[in-house]
């Protein structure tokens, strides 16, 4: 167990290093940071001064090792736009993004699991057909558009909920729901098919024959066997949401999290901040994956991590 975790951590480290290298290559070698960050009318002297300030006039390898060395010390550089450490900005915004992501995942699981189970109880029945149709429909709707529709209906027409911002719990409802819906639909499909498989298993027939009530069979026996695949997908969906989809939803609802700041960093051409955000997200994803591996082992001792 310890050895395997060590191996997993090593793989995680490789991922983080890979992301670092890709970001470095893209920002320093493919694009010219000076071009991107300075206005077009900057003079040659201004450009040179800026290059010197960022250390871009040094050999590329020196720059790379310097970059990695400062990352290792948790120094992610200073944001050019806000003139303060990028890490400080990120730590300010990260809780809001995590709050949004966890709420979305919670909503998705709380809706998807019962829905999937009910659909699986009678395969081909009315509820099952409606569930499948709804999932297929919801999966086809672009997320940003869904968010805008929610704003139009619940904020503009009905005036029940605010259209944007993050001031109160009310502000959370629409973005969390928008973020949750694609996850929910994929989760419903997995819960449904897993549950169908389990309900066809011999142990369920035995339990039925003994006269065990249905909710006990489902809740006590079948659910536990479904837990691992459902958890795998949930973890995967969380990573998906965190590593991209929040950008879209945070933009639609002006939710001041990491995704919104990433987009603003692009608009202000603040590459330092953007690099820092990508790095932090990569670290979170790797740590999260590691945590999920450990949780698996605890839940189901049969799983071998290799």
């Amino acid at each position: 167990m310890g050895r395997i975790l060590l191996l997993r951590s090593w793989h995680g480290l490789i991922v983080i290093m890979g992301v670092t290298i890709v970001v470095f290559v893209v920002t320093r070698m493919i694009g010219d940071p000076v071009d991107i960050m300075l206005p077009l009318e900057a003079t040659a002297e201004q450009r040179a001064a800026f290059e010197h300030q960022l250390g871009l006039d040094r050999p590329i390898l020196v720059q790379f090792f310097d970059y990695v060395w400062s990352l290792a010390q948790f120094d992610l550089g200073d944001s050019l736009w806000q003139n303060r450490p990028a890490l400080e900005i990120i730590l300010e915004r990260l809780p809001l993004t995590l709050y949004l992501c966890f709420s979305a995942i919670a909503v998705a699981v709380l809706v998807a699991v019962p829905m999937g189970v009910i659909a699986a109880l009678k395969p081909g029945g009315i509820i099952d057909k409606i569930t499948v149709l709804l999932s297929l429909g919801a999966l086809s709707v672009p997320q940003f558009w869904l968010g805008l529709l929610f704003i139009m209906v619940f904020a503009v027409q009905l005036g029940w909920l605010p259209a944007g911002g993050a001031a109160s719990f009310k502000h959370l409802i629409l973005p969390a729901l928008t973020l949750a819906i694609p996850t929910m639909t994929r989760l419903v499909m997995v819960v449904r098919s897993q549950m169908m498989d389990e309900l066809n298993a011999q142990y369920v027939k035995t339990a039925e024959a003994k006269g065990m009530p249905l909710f006990r069979i489902v809740g006590l026996h079948a659910m536990r066997n479904c837990a691992v695949p459902v958890m795998t997908l949930t973890a995967w969906e969380f990573i998906r949401i965190l590593s991209g989809y929040t950008v879209v939803v945070e933009t639609v609802f002006a939710w001041p999290g990491l995704g919104l700041i990433a987009l603003q960093a692009i608009e202000r051409q603040d590459l330092v901040l953007l690099q820092a955000i990508v790095f932090v997200i990569a670290v979170i994803v790797v740590v999260f994956n590691l945590a999920v591996d450990i949780i698996y082992k605890v839940i189901d001792p049969r799983i071998k991590l290799d």
Binding site: V19, V26, I36, I266, L274, V285
Partner: peptide, 20 residues
């Protein structure tokens, strides 16, 4: 492939699009 899949894909895409 495992390494690339573990990348935060959309964010990295944003970086590339912002630079290029």
């Amino acid at each position: 492939v495992d390494t690339i899949i573990a990348f935060p894909g959309l964010l990295l895409a944003l970086v590339i699009l912002a630079v290029i």
